[in-house]
Amino acid sequence: MAKDLPVVPSAPPGTMALKPVAAAWRERHPQIIEGRCNACGECLYFCPEGALKLKETEKGKELEINLDFCKGCGICAHECQRQALRMVAEYTGPQGLLG
């Protein structure tokens, strides 16, 4: 029996977001430096992954980082004019043979 497939080879919308795989490539990730981010939202335009969002909180807008999507390129930290993000290594201990 052949697999049940759509007649026109195709994929339903947005389905890659459901099970992101490429975040596993990440070697470092952004971290918000307490008190520096003013939630200007500029970095949202520069993130290739859609990993950054502004969420509404009681204190107003706040930057949120979705590590399911983030591959750790560091563009957000590099571009931030307030230097409100730093990139931190994904792993703390040695990597390699024993990793």
Binding site: V8, P9, S10, A11, P12, P13
Partner: peptide, 9 residues
């Protein structure tokens, strides 16, 4: 009814 046609298989 959006869908992506001819994605990499």
């Amino acid at each position: 009814n959006p869908q992506a046609v001819n994605v990499v298989t």
